[in-house]
């Protein structure tokens, strides 16, 4: 497989001035400022192959967006190298920019007072898409996202979900080979989140596009990505499959029994750590090695109707990895 994205010891430092408290502090800062350097990304290295779907996750301020912005040529790295599609992103070569796209859930490129279709037409000109290709891709994308009618409406009159779908179309009208998605589902309701996810998967399948996705929603990552890269305080702490992450960082499994009668949580503590219990259905954390023994104990000592033994949920593992920092905002 061809490597599409390569990072070698990529770092980014920001120089910011320290803010002092209160009015006096602010006035003082006008005359004398103290600066400090923040290492947002520290010697990050990884490769991504053509057509891969990679989830890039980490707590707030971990360096996800900074890395994406360096990969898309918006920020100059402080040191290290990166290559995307064989180009150095910082050079912002025309041929490079024509093959990538960056979708930011919190920023929009659509012309607010005009119908979304107008932005698509403008992007067609900017990316030099031929009339035939434009018609074909617009038709396909509008069908996949179900916005054939909506895209003729003024953007300001659209719902957040409709707007996000149109943002995606505007970003994909030139069929980018590499797609950077920075929180594409932020603020969307559950149904809309699912639709956007399905769309990303379908787009990747159809056009063999390489996708890097950052998201605070673990469902996004779970459903879309086979590989995840976790960054914390500017450093990569994990790179691999979701299964590998769970096996590596969660030394427990979850037993989910359904009882025929009511069972107290207190009685269940001898099996393991009770996370949830409504009397009939319980969720119990049990050490990986003890699972067979504890499961049999449970079946013998309680009136169990059904028993599931599951791996822990991705969000729980990630949450535990980052201690008290929660991934979901």
């Amino acid at each position: 497989m061809k490597k599409v994205i390569e990072l070698k010891k990529l770092s980014k430092n920001f120089r910011i001035h320290k803010r002092e408290q209160g009015l006096i502090g602010s006035v003082k800062a006008l005359f004398k400022r103290e600066y400090k350097t923040i290492e947002a990304v520290k010697k990050v290295s990884f490769d991504i192959e053509e057509g891969e779907l990679v989830g890039f996750i980490g707590p707030n301020g971990a360096g996800k967006t900074t890395t994406l912005k360096m990969l898309s040529g918006l920020l100059y790295p402080s040191s290290g190298n990166c290559q995307v599609l064989g180009f150095r992103p910082v050079e912002r070569k025309y041929e490079f920019l024509k093959q990538i796209s960056l979708v930011m859930g919190q920023k929009n490129q659509l012309w607010w007072d005009l119908p979304a279709i107008e932005t698509f037409v403008l992007n067609k000109e900017i990316y030099e898409v031929s009339d035939e290709d434009y018609k074909e891709i617009l038709n396909e994308l509008a069908e996949m996202l179900d916005v054939k009618e909506v895209m003729h409406q003024q953007v300001r009159k659209m719902s957040l979900g409709q707007r996000m779908k149109c943002e995606l179309i505007a970003s994909l009208i030139h069929k980018p080979k590499v797609l950077f998605l920075d929180e594409p589902t932020i603020g969307l309701d559950v149904v809309m989140q699912k639709k956007v996810r399905e769309f990303i998967l379908e787009y990747n399948r159809k056009y063999k596009a390489t996708v890097i996705l950052t998201s605070h929603y673990m469902d996004d990552v779970k459903e879309i990505c086979k590989r995840i890269i976790i960054i914390d305080k500017g450093v990569i702490v994990f790179d691999g499959s979701i299964e590998k992450l769970i096996k590596k960082y969660a030394n427990y499994k979850v037993l989910i029994p359904i009882f025929n009668g009511k069972v107290d949580s207190e009685r269940l503590t001898k099996i393991g750590e009770v996370i949830e219990n409504n009397g009939i259905r319980a969720v119990i954390k049990v050490g990986r090695k003890e699972v067979p023994k504890k499961a049999s104990e449970l079946l013998h000592e309680f009136d169990v109707d059904d028993l599931d033994i599951n791996e822990p949920r991705l969000e729980d593992v990630v949450r535990e990895m980052f201690g008290k920092v929660t991934i979901r905002e």
Partner: peptide, 14 residues
């Protein structure tokens, strides 16, 4: 506010 991102990402003279 970082809106310049949307400009710099386009294959046009910024």
């Amino acid at each position: 506010n970082g809106e310049l991102d949307l400009i710099l990402i386009k294959p046009l003279n910024s």
